[in-house]
Design a protein around this nucleic acid. Structure first.
Lengths: 349, 349
DNA sequence: TAGAGCCTGGACAACGTTGTCAGATGCGAG
DNA sequence: CTCGCATCTGACAACGTTGTCCAGGCTCTA
């Protein structure tokens, strides 16, 4: 029986069961501790015969190296943390996956958690990851003050913010061109003759939402259109409120003839509302959505490349770790207007 | 300057930068090491004055506890691993999120990775997670032999398989009723008058795919319909092959009048193909997809509850850890047929 | 055949934390 | 004034691994 068996008696809370350690393997193989370490890590300087004996002992005992101890000794964990808003959001799936692939290419594991758009939870998560001594952190900010990460960054935790900028801290940031994308999308509607255009977006305290709103305003201003309050709805992404907002701007005298949606969640609800309308209303949404091409009419969108965001951020993170990188930078990825029909409808008034 | 500063010189590979340790905090606060530990962990028996001094030192140095060391000492990592097939697949997003929420409720972090449907990669990932000493493992199997996990399970790693059963090993499994769901879906088409019904699914070595195929065959047999080879396509989920398969069964003499799709990815491609057809073809798909209700016609699906799968699995995992659970069990969650139009079209021949 | 040098193996300390235990301090009671 | 007790504090070992360093045995050459 492995020597560590006794531990279970002393620490009932332990959960390793009775894991054999290198010491146990060494004892069984009749070699020294360090020799086992060498075999496990494929280090040179072990005769084939010794190696075989060690391997047999490993098999027999079902030994697996304890990486916690290894990490403690080596200082690197070969893992990176990802704090995002909601794993279940289809926008973040490809982003996570891209981060994961880059991590994998660098031999690192990915630990991730959702902030649920709660700044406190974001902080809690990020710091928990730091306590685990992740080598780096990719953060999709929920809050707008990230000074709490300063000691961590100083201590060597590579950090990259994605999708939204860091607050009150100088750090690498990878963003989509939210302002430009929204402006282009709205300008597209204007180019098709619309003047009363509604905007439904998220809370302006969210950077992406604010930027897209700014793009909307800019496009309107460029066209010399004075925006009316009732054309804008900010802060609602839950279906009920979006629905109410859309229905309001579509009713009354001088209803909007087109709507611009600030993100994918707003888009799906607005499309539902529009499908119920008797007259046709033009539509452009920020973020692409699946099957957008199959709807009648096809949904015109301003698409951002979520995977590219994740990939770029993760690559930058590993370059920070390599020491290749010096000063923090702000990288902006372009968006792409995909016309499919809904954005090309003429005003129906 | 913290005493550990020297480390950087000795181990250039280290990545902690120069993290202060409890020892450094203790030195600065003029107290003992253990007292710092007590303060950090909120243990009783520290005078307010001492606590304040320690807190100040912690602030000043930017100290954060090293959980790697803590884990080594305590035996529990308060983290669980999730091995899934593809984080970017919209089906797995809600599942991951549900697992994460349960983990969070138990104070655990989630480490996850994608197997990309590669059994070797699944094993590599699962074992890497075990080496990190995760307390438990939720696995969506890619392979069909999980004996490699036996030593881990014996060593106390709580393990639950989701979406697909474990292979050659006795373990907890949480599944959807793939057989029943597919049978119901196909029976629904038969009830609407169809007899020549196509089936497009994934490789039968994937359990869910095999079960759904079995459900298809059962429904056909129940109706006394002899299935023809050319009505079935197995092993293709990439758009090109699905497209070819669908077009083939829709051409020639006696084409199918309805198609049953084995999963969400097949569904989106088949819907595209059907949209191009001149005549109407009935359709039912396994897995719900976003906006399915807005297409013309609405897409009838057999929906499974991905979040419930994840939640159930994770809860079971933590009950294993509590010791509440004894024998492995196989839990099957029901599916739900959602009629939206496409599955109720009559045969067009 | 002796000496130099190489190859293999092992003893030991250290990584940063927590559990154990014993020492120090202060207070009240006899 | 002293003893006992409770409260607070700190020294020390241990968790399982890896880096350092040295010992012993071997081979090869002079």
């Amino acid at each position: 029986m492995p020597e560590t068996t006794r531990r279970a008696d002393r620490l009932p809370g332990t959960r390793y069961g009775n894991r054999p350690t290198m010491k146990d393997v060494a004892a069984r193989a009749g070699v020294g501790l360090k020799t086992v370490s060498r075999v496990v890590n494929g280090e040179p300087g072990v005769t084939p015969d010794t190696e075989r004996r060690v391997q047999e002992a490993i098999e027999a005992l079902g030994f697996r190296r304890n990486d916690s101890a290894r990490v403690l000794r080596k200082g690197r964990t070969a893992s990176i943390g990802l704090v995002l808003e909601d794993l279940a959001d289809p926008f973040y799936g490809p982003l996570s996956r891209a981060v994961e692939e880059v991590a994998r290419a660098h031999g690192a594991l990915l630990i991730n958690g959702s902030s649920a758009e709660d700044p406190e939870r974001e902080q809690e998560l990020a710091l928990a990851l730091c306590a685990r001594r992740v080598d780096g952190l990719v953060v999709i900010p929920a809050g707008d003050d990230h000074r709490y990460l300063e000691p961590e960054i100083r201590a060597g935790v590579a950090t990259v913010f994605v999708d939204r900028p860091a607050g009150r801290i100088d750090a690498d940031v990878v963003l989509s061109d939210n302002y430009g994308g929204a402006r282009d999308g709205v300008a597209h509607l204007i180019a098709h003759g619309h003047r009363r255009i509604g905007f439904i977006g998220d809370m302006p305290r969210i950077h992406t939402a604010a930027e897209r709103l700014r793009g909307y305003r800019a496009a309107m201003e460029d066209a010399g259109i004075a925006v009316e309050e009732r054309w804008m709805s900010l802060g609602a992404t839950d279906p009920e409120r979006v629905r109410r907002a859309a229905e309001e701007m579509l009713s009354g005298p001088d209803p909007v003839t087109a709507i611009f949606a600030g993100n994918n969640r707003v888009t799906v609800t607005v499309i539902r509302v529009l499908a119920e309308q008797s007259r046709q209303v033009a539509f452009v949404g920020f973020d692409d959505i699946e099957l957008a091409d199959l709807l009648q009419p096809g949904v015109t969108v301003v698409a951002q490349d979520a995977a590219a965001l994740g990939r770029t951020a993760a690559e930058r993170l590993f370059r920070q770790l390599d020491g290749t990188l010096v000063a923090p930078e702000r990288i902006e990825l372009p968006t792409r207007l995909i016309t499919r029909g809904s954005g090309e409808l003429p005003p129906a008034d």
